[in-house]
């Protein structure tokens, strides 16, 4: 099997991550997409509430503008009642709200597109083949028993799902985007998950 040389892979992964970040102004993160798509009901409700909240804020802004137009924004002239009241310090601008996540439907589209992209890659390279095993290396290193294979994949999957969400990201969110931003939390997470995978892979290869 022939795969891309390392530099082509590096350029490809970097281009995808950089273009996605610039186009969406958001972090490319696959485990986060899983998280939100699997909790789509709650996420849809949250989106609805937030949409209403923006409407309310827009209404308040409009009312404020209309009031200012009607009555002016100037302070009352000296002598008028209320003019001598101490004026408080100017209200500080509210801290910027955290960026809203992309709509949940776009994250579902991301997952489906990854499937189509993977399928295209397999077809183009002549590697597409419907099969009931995980390849010769998996049979050799992990197990060649189909029942054990299913159990190992399921257990491993649970660890991946639980672990990535507990850590707040996976190889795309922490690994590519987070390390690319030099976020301390992402550098730590990437070092730990990569180091653990190295240890477990050696155990599987040499010991078990």
């Amino acid at each position: 099997m022939t795969y891309w040389p390392w530099w082509a892979g590096a350029v490809g992964l970097a281009l995808v991550t950089i273009a996605f970040t610039l186009a969406t102004d958001r972090t490319l993160g696959v485990s986060g997409a899983w998280e939100r798509v699997l909790h789509w009901r709650e996420e849809r409700n949250r989106e609805r509430v937030e949409a209403r909240f923006t409407d309310d804020r827009a209404l308040a802004d409009l009312l404020a503008a209309a009031t200012a137009e009607e009555f002016g924004t100037r302070h009352p002239a000296p002598g008028t009642p209320g003019a001598d009241l101490p004026v408080g310090p100017p209200v500080e601008e509210a801290p910027r709200a955290p960026k809203r996540p992309a709509p949940v439907v776009t994250q579902a589209a991301l997952l489906v597109s990854i499937l189509v992209g993977g399928w295209l890659a397999a077809v183009v390279s002549g590697q597409f083949e419907l099969r009931l095993d995980m390849g010769a290396a998996f049979s050799e290193i992990v197990t060649d028993n189909p029942v054990t294979m299913v159990l190992a994949l399921f257990a491993g999957g649970i660890m991946v799902g639980f672990g990535t969400r507990l850590a707040g990201g996976c190889s795309s969110g922490h690994g590519l985007s987070g390390c690319g931003r030099l976020n301390p939390v992402s550098l730590l997470a990437t070092a730990v998950f990569f180091g653990t995978a190295v240890v477990v892979s050696f155990l599987l290869w040499k010991v078990i």
């Binding site: 696959v30 295209l120 890659a121 397999a122 992990v142 672990g163 990535t164 850590a167 990437t190």
Partner: peptide, 29 residues
């Protein structure tokens, strides 16, 4: 962060899947 990353690394080494990989594996058949 640390317990999550340890779990993730273990699961990745065993199943061969980070959250995107099993999707492309299904895509490859």
């Amino acid at each position: 962060v640390v317990p999550g990353a340890v779990l993730f690394g273990t699961g990745w080494a065993i199943s061969g899947g980070c959250p995107a990989i099993p999707i492309i594996q299904v895509g490859a058949g």
